[in-house]
Design a binder for these strands. Structure first.
Lengths: 281, 281
DNA sequence: AAGATTATGTAACTTTACAACATTTAAGTT
DNA sequence: AACTTAAATGTTGTAAAGTTACATAATCTT
């Protein structure tokens, strides 16, 4: 876990002098990583061994090791999840903030990942006669992306953001057919209806959505991203990226389980696409 | 810039012995950061001062400073870029690898970011009478996503992955109209044609693509993600995520420059969408 | 308040990194 | 090809940094 964070969280287990050291470390980590233990001890007004003991208490081998880990903690940067764009930001600042918060959101999603639903999704896909990817609004493009990838396999797949088309597919669905219902909030009424209809016809409904949402009720399997809700200020940003990556993982697993023969086909498809492109010089 | 990357890029400026040191540093950075200069010299089979000189050549104050920067470089996580999924990976491993490599790719894109083209894109959008988002294959869903976001503003915008529709728009385009041409490789022939037609009609063509690609030739502004080409094994994965985030940044900047009145409208739109959803309990 | 326990500092010791100088190797030059 | 010059690499010695072991001071128990 992050060292700087660990220092602030475990302040209680430090002694009086050690806390002085902790204050210096958290207050000015940038300069601490370039300082000697003697200097550090002088600034904190404690003895050198105290600084050393402080490091050990944090599971570091010694002061140099502490500096190393502190440097890494700094490099990783604070989880910039809540760095919202502000009025007077320059384009450069703003771009970095957008990247930062996306990275932070993905990181959180990664850490809270549960692979079981993903595994279940892969198993369902392996025996699916046909597959559909449905979503509305921002989730429509996620569904679009997913279908684009599945178009490379031999199992028939469709994408739609059209309410009636979706409904028709759902009514025509048969057991083992797989429907991906994509929605960040899981509260889109129309999609819940579609999921319900599909499920009534025996299809396997996989929700790329939030657990405990209305949509989750109608899903046989819920793949959740756990991206904090307040990430997306005016429109979906980080949440849909997490959805895309989750689908990437499902596809990677599906590709793997389909065996080497399918992977060769994929390589051939990639090769075949080159005809539509200018060759590299 | 990233130290590990700088070592591999500047291999030429190192002497023979220094290159031995570079090999050890890049080959096993994890253990190097916990080693003394004496040990490092022994492993590389050179003298200690050679190691020291190697560090200085990389603008480090000395060996400890080098270790510090190396540790930071590791913490940023660049090395996970090439973590390809393998045959016997469990679903859990594989999912983590997909997340890791996506994060790594985004990180690189972030570090090598040039905000000037983004700024230019925002300026072009601000005076655009109408906007189009075109792309094929995986980039079609990126274009789809971008249009979905722009639908919230008052400027007319379209998305298409249909060759003829795109061509019609391009022919009908007028000065100041903005066309987003999205393609990772920048080698899709059809898209190059469209871009050329649009440009001939005076439209501003913004490429979300690779610099120096054929497509870039027909663009007034190229927003590039700099994601390494070999990231995507069978189908686009990391590259398109970077494109999405770049577009997010453009939209964020556009939203900001449009002023508070537009932001209020966005908030109202978000509010208005709630009618299509189940309320939160 | 005496003894036990914990916290902190002092001093000696070890390791580490670096500078100055020496030697080797490579590259020009006549 | 032999000599000259410059660059690269290594050797030795030293100052600084970090750590250990021990001593002293502060704090807590009963």
């Amino acid at each position: 876990m992050d060292l700087l964070q660990r220092i602030t969280e475990n302040l209680s287990q430090f002694s009086k002098s050690e806390r002085k050291v902790a204050d210096i470390a958290t207050g000015n980590p940038e300069s601490v990583i370039h300082t000697s233990i003697a200097n550090m001890a002088a600034i904190a007004d404690v003895s050198e061994p105290t600084v050393n003991r402080f490091c050990r208490r944090l599971d570091c081998k010694g002061f140099p090791d502490f500096k190393l880990k502190l440097a890494q903690s700094l490099a990783k940067g604070t989880p910039f999840l809540n760095r919202h764009v502000e009025e007077n930001d320059s384009v450069d600042e703003l771009t970095n903030k957008i990247f930062d918060s996306t990275l932070a959101a993905l990181n959180i999603a990664r850490q809270q990942l549960d692979s079981k639903p993903i595994e279940a999704a892969i198993d369902a896909l392996l025996k699916a006669p046909k597959i559909a990817f449905f979503g509305f609004g921002a989730s429509a493009s996620v569904a679009h992306d997913a279908q684009n990838k599945f178009a490379r396999f031999d199992t028939p797949s469709v994408f739609s953001d059209d309410l009636l088309m979706q409904r028709m597919w759902a009514i025509n669905s048969k057991p083992d057919d797989v429907l991906f219902a994509i929605s960040h909030t899981g509260r889109t009424k129309a999609l819940c209806e579609i999921a319900e209809i599909a499920q009534q016809n025996g299809a396997t409904v996989i929700g790329i959505t939030t657990v405990n949402s209305p949509l989750a009720e109608f899903c046989n399997d819920v793949v959740s991203s756990n991206v904090p809700e307040d990430t997306d200020q005016y429109m979906p940003m980080a949440s849909r990226i997490a959805h895309l990556v989750l689908i990437d993982a499902i596809i990677a697993g599906y590709t793997l389980k389909r065996g080497s023969e399918v992977r060769e086909k994929l390589a051939r498809i990639k090769q075949g696409l080159k005809g539509s492109r200018f060759p590299r010089h």
